[in-house]
């Protein structure tokens, strides 16, 4: 018996909404006087000085790469909202998308603080903060995300495999990024690993469940793994910016996390009794891949939808 139902009906705590009505200001953002420069800044008050001996454009571009991975992956996962197979997974996918969006926001803000020249110039009077300018006012070729993040969504098995590959790799990278010489990146990573651990476990459990489920669920899972496998090796390529970031102590060389990531992935494949796929890697275009701004055409369409409102109203106040 729910003890709460025994309370008098007039008890203000009886309504799930009562707490929300105490203070209408919760729903009127911007109503309070907010000091200049502290509005929506996710790094308000943090020391964002570029560490000594670190090249600012390198740090900014490296932060953009990590931020763009999260931004694009978040948007693809968010497309599942209201479309997942059941309510629990709809909520799970939305939560994962939200965590990644938060990571993207911090990283894009960090990039802008390290080197303001990476931020697109907006029309005079635009109130968009730098991280929004970076998210909503760059073209596809200016994004540095790995191509795994941008693939058009498939079925739920595809979402499972993609989140598994992405979070196995990202967590292996971020475990090391916790000791970045840039204390903003280090703090973002220390927070992010806790979130990514939940994402990885969620995808790994579904991977095993689908592989060991029905012939149809296994068929779909293997098809998704085969389709995404060619994009796995790209995650461990070392772009010159990543090499420079690793060299100066602020970044992680992707090649250095390959063994750790493969070991975790093998654990999942073993538990699911799924053989490692053998499909060759997807080639770049003249050797250029996601980190160079070379993307599939799907990213352009995704951005067109994601950015349309912000671009139509660059002076809009939300």
């Amino acid at each position: 018996m729910n003890s709460r139902t025994e309370r008098p009906a007039e008890d203000e705590h009886d309504s799930a909404y009562s707490g929300l009505l105490v203070n209408d200001a919760h729903w009127a953002f911007g109503a309070a006087p907010v000091p200049e420069g502290h509005g929506e800044d996710p790094l308000a008050g943090l020391d964002t000085t570029v560490p000594a001996g670190v090249d600012a454009p390198t740090l900014a571009t490296y932060a953009l790469m990590l931020g763009d991975d999260a931004l694009v992956m978040s948007h693809r996962i968010a497309e599942w909202t209201s479309n997942a197979p059941d309510l629990e997974d709809d909520i799970a996918l939305s939560n994962i998308a939200l965590d990644l969006l938060g990571q993207a926001r911090l990283l894009l803000a960090r990039a802008a603080r390290a080197d303001a020249s990476v931020v697109p110039v907006l029309p005079e009077g635009s109130p968009a903060p730098p991280e929004d300018a970076l998210a909503y006012f760059r073209e596809a070729h200016e994004l540095r995300n790995v191509r795994l993040a941008e693939v058009v969504n498939g079925d739920f098995a595809e979402a499972t495999v993609r989140i598994l590959l992405f979070s196995v790799w990202r967590l292996a990278t971020w475990e090391r990024l916790r000791s970045s010489a840039d204390h903003v990146l280090a703090a973002v990573a220390a927070k992010g690993v806790k979130e990514l651990a939940y994402h990885r476990d969620y995808a790994a459990r579904w991977f095993v469940t689908l592989a060991q489920g029905t012939p149809e669920s296994r068929r779909r899972l293997l098809a998704a793994l085969d389709a995404l496998w060619p994009l796995w090796p790209e995650l461990f390529d070392t772009h010159p910016v990543e090499a420079a970031a690793a060299e100066s102590g602020v970044g992680v060389d992707p090649a250095a996390v390959r063994d750790a990531a493969e070991a975790v992935l093998d654990q999942v494949l073993d538990a699911a009794d799924v053989p490692r796929p053998s499909a060759p890697r997807r080639a770049g275009v003249l050797g250029r891949t996601g980190r160079d701004g070379m993307h599939g055409e799907a990213l352009g369409r995704m951005l067109a939808e994601m950015q349309s409102v912000a671009r139509a109203h660059p002076r809009g106040v939300w």
Partner: peptide, 15 residues
């Protein structure tokens, strides 16, 4: 959490 959407509301309430 990194994506906690309540930060702006917390800040406004504190102010």
């Amino acid at each position: 959490y990194s994506g906690c959407p309540a930060m702006a509301a917390m800040r406004d309430d504190l102010v």
